Amino acid sequence: MRIAVTGSSGKLGRATVDRLRSEGHEVAGFDLTGTAGVGFTRVDLADYGQTLDSMIGVTARHEGLDAVVHLAAIPVNGLVPDAATFQNNMTVSFNVVHAAMRAGIRRIVTASSITAMGFPFDEPPAALPIDESTTAANNTYALAKVAEEAMWAQLVRWEPEMSISSLRFTNVVAPDEYGTFVNASDPAYRRDLLFSYVDSRDGAAAVALALAHATPGFEIYDVAASDTGSAVPTAELAALHFPGVPLRPGLGEFETLMSIDKARARLGFEPEHLWRDGYAAHQLRA
């Protein structure tokens, strides 16, 4: 397919571009910054005219697209004022998906976030592992993600053949960042993320699978590693930080508390890059 990836210069964006190209797709990267070349076009996605034009075609880059992967965003609160985070991310997301619809593109994958599920989880979840049925926003970045998901659910009603898959990524870790897991023995490490993480390569694999398994309608999928980012057993973490919250029977010793059951069942998603392997390799290099 001919696929545009917005936010192509970001951590997950770079991994996604690499993954899709390795599968034989023609990829056009759209971002404010990036390396000039055949696979990249500088697009201000906050400008609807630029966004629509880039979806229809870009001379010397592409003559139309089959799919769009939307990853571009201000990635966290604090980089700009809170209202600006919400306003920018909502505007850009609307522009990208609405322009894709106007350009006749019917296969779209967007990045949502664990923040749309209650991060930093000061209010205990109803049960663990948490799944796609939980929606709660506690900052303006998360509020935009919740609003985007509601918007996608409405837009697919306008176009019966439209497929929008929203992937709720947890914290994305690049292959060279496993040194940060030196704190994994601390029971508080990654507590605000329910101790979760996902390797950027596995995040990219989830994108590729969502594109491959796209069906008309809107779906949300949680995307995380299959284990926690902690050296403390999962049941102990849950009992310490979320006492009284029901824990699914039969949970594995280090199994994630951000359920990926739906992505496994419907997309065939299975994380391949776990921090224990990556951290060991990092220590050897060090």
Rank of each mutant, 00 (worst) to 15 (best):
N139E: 09
I105Y: 11
S93M: 02
I108E: 07
N139F: 04
A137N: 09
A116D: 07
F94V: 15
P125I: 05
V76E: 13
T91I: 07
F94H: 15
T110D: 11
A127D: 13
M117Y: 08
S113E: 09
T91E: 10
R106W: 04
G78N: 04
Y141M: 04
V80L: 06
V109T: 07
V92M: 00
D131M: 00
F86Y: 15
S113R: 04
A100V: 08
N88K: 08
P81M: 01
S112V: 04
D131Y: 06
A84H: 04
I108F: 05
F119N: 12
P124K: 05
E123R: 13
Q87V: 09
V76Q: 13
L79R: 07
N139Q: 08
D122N: 12
I108Q: 04
G78F: 04
N77L: 02
M90T: 13
P75W: 03
F94E: 15
P81F: 04
S93H: 01
E123W: 01
R106H: 12
T135R: 14
A116T: 06
E132P: 00
P75R: 01
P75S: 01
N138S: 11
N88P: 03
N89F: 03
P81T: 00
T115H: 05
N138H: 13
T110N: 10
I108L: 14
M90V: 12
I108N: 02
A100D: 06
N77E: 15
V92A: 06
L143K: 08
T115N: 08
N138E: 11
V76P: 05
S93P: 00
T110L: 07
A116R: 03
P125W: 04
S113D: 12
S133I: 00
P125F: 02
P81C: 05
P129V: 01
I105R: 08
R106S: 11
A111V: 14
D82I: 03
A137Q: 09
A103L: 06
V97W: 01
T140L: 15
F94L: 15
T140S: 15
S93L: 05
T91F: 00
A111K: 06
F119K: 10
I130E: 01
A126H: 08
S133Q: 12
A144R: 01
D122G: 07
M101P: 00
A84S: 09
P124N: 11
T134Y: 06
A99D: 10
N95T: 12
S113I: 07
I114A: 03
S133K: 08
I114W: 03
Y141W: 03
A116E: 07
S113A: 14
N138R: 13
M101V: 15
I114M: 10
L79N: 07
F121I: 07
P129D: 14
D82N: 13
A84Y: 00
F86Q: 08
V109E: 01
A127Q: 13
G78M: 02
S133L: 00
V96T: 03
V80Q: 01
N95L: 11
A111Q: 13
S133Y: 03
A111R: 05
A136T: 08
P120M: 05
L128K: 05
N95W: 05
L143E: 14
S113Y: 02
T85H: 02
A100W: 04
I130S: 01
A144F: 00
A111L: 12
G104T: 11
Q87I: 06
P125H: 01
A137M: 10
L128N: 10
V92F: 06
N138C: 10
